[in-house]
Computed example of a mutant assay.
Amino acid sequence: MNFPDTRGARAAILGALRASAPATAQPAPDLSPYLDGPYGRGSRGPRVDPATLIAPFEAAAKSWRAEVLHANETGWPRVVRQALAQRGCTRVAVGAASPLQPGLDTALDGLHVRRFDAPLQQWKAELFDAVDAGITAAEAGIADTGTLILRPNSAEPRTLSLVPPLHVAVLHASRLYPGLPAAMAAVTSQQSDMPTNLLLVTGPSKTADIQQVLAFGAHGPKELVIVLVNDLHVAKEPQ
């Protein structure tokens, strides 16, 4: 099939946009009102103690119908396994090089584990039709909204948290932040450059029709289980 050459039209559109651009750069917006308000909490001054954020994070996450399970640093694989067993999950998808290793292998011993180590097209039918759960690590958590921040990459693609009916996310309490600005500042400061892909997850997948009837699992996982690992006694997040 021969497609029309649109390079001329694109050049004309881009040229018109460039010609209409302001001669001088616009001043940067003042973000102080937002950062000083309730939604910017924790973005300025000393970091809010993550120990004080565990309870509000759990309450917010539960309000969105996520389940929060508590674990310590040695026991979290057992908690993950219990969450899978309670739901009868035997076929689990994980990343090709999950940051949760080696504990994740312990949690999944004896189950059918499918690693995301091949192009999606090669096992798409299995992922959509046979896999019971996807397990990922969480980069951070936002206490005000009960939101998870995931940082998908080739080792742990975002499909793991979007397709299987159950999403199990492992979040360390040392990575809890009060609001989105504080969490984003922490996530980006730990990277050499801005991540190209961040995923915000607030509860399981949900949608509502025109009659405002809420349905879960229409566009992603029907259930979200957060395993919150209390590592505060041995680990501190960089300021």
Rank of each mutant, 00 (worst) to 15 (best):
A155I: 01
P204Q: 03
A186T: 06
L171S: 06
L111P: 01
P178A: 15
I149N: 07
M184Q: 09
T147P: 00
D209W: 10
H172I: 04
T159S: 14
P195Q: 02
P164T: 06
Q121A: 15
V168G: 09
L166T: 12
A125F: 09
I135T: 05
L111K: 01
A137K: 06
P165V: 15
Q191A: 15
F116H: 12
K124Y: 05
Q190L: 14
L160D: 10
R175A: 13
Q122H: 10
P178S: 13
F128T: 07
M194D: 13
L127R: 02
A173W: 02
L108H: 02
A118Q: 12
R151V: 02
N197E: 12
S174Y: 03
A155M: 10
F128Y: 14
E156T: 13
K206A: 15
L171K: 03
H167W: 00
P181F: 11
L108D: 00
P178Q: 12
P119L: 04
L200E: 01
P204G: 11
D117G: 11
A137E: 01
L162C: 04
R158S: 13
G110V: 01
L120H: 09
R115V: 11
R114D: 12
G146Q: 05
P195E: 07
D144H: 08
Q121H: 11
L108E: 01
S192A: 10
L160F: 04
L111D: 00
M184I: 15
E126H: 05
V113N: 01
S192Q: 15
L180R: 04
A208Q: 14
Q121N: 06
I149A: 05
T202E: 13
L198H: 06
S189V: 05
E156V: 13
G203C: 07
S161L: 05
I142W: 00
T159C: 08
P165N: 06
K124G: 09
L200W: 09
L176R: 02
N197C: 14
L148D: 04
A137N: 07
Q122R: 13
A138P: 08
V163G: 12
W123L: 13
F128N: 12
D129S: 11
S192W: 05
G141H: 11
L148N: 04
A140L: 06
K206G: 05
T207Q: 08
R115H: 12
A185C: 04
K206D: 08
W123A: 15
S189G: 12
V187Q: 06
L127W: 00
L199I: 14
Y177E: 11
H167V: 08
D132S: 02
D193G: 14
R158Q: 09
A130G: 08
V201M: 03
P178Y: 05
W123R: 15
P195S: 11
M184L: 15
R158E: 04
E156Q: 15
L171M: 00
A130W: 04
P181M: 01
L111C: 05
L162P: 05
I135Y: 06
V131H: 06
L148R: 09
A185L: 04
V113A: 14
D144G: 11
P195T: 08
V187P: 10
L198S: 07
T196Q: 09
L171V: 07
P181Q: 04
R115N: 03
L180N: 07
Y177Q: 14
L199M: 15
T147C: 10
S174I: 08
S205M: 04
A140K: 04
L162G: 12
R175E: 05
A125K: 14
L150Q: 08
Q190N: 11
L150N: 05
L198C: 14
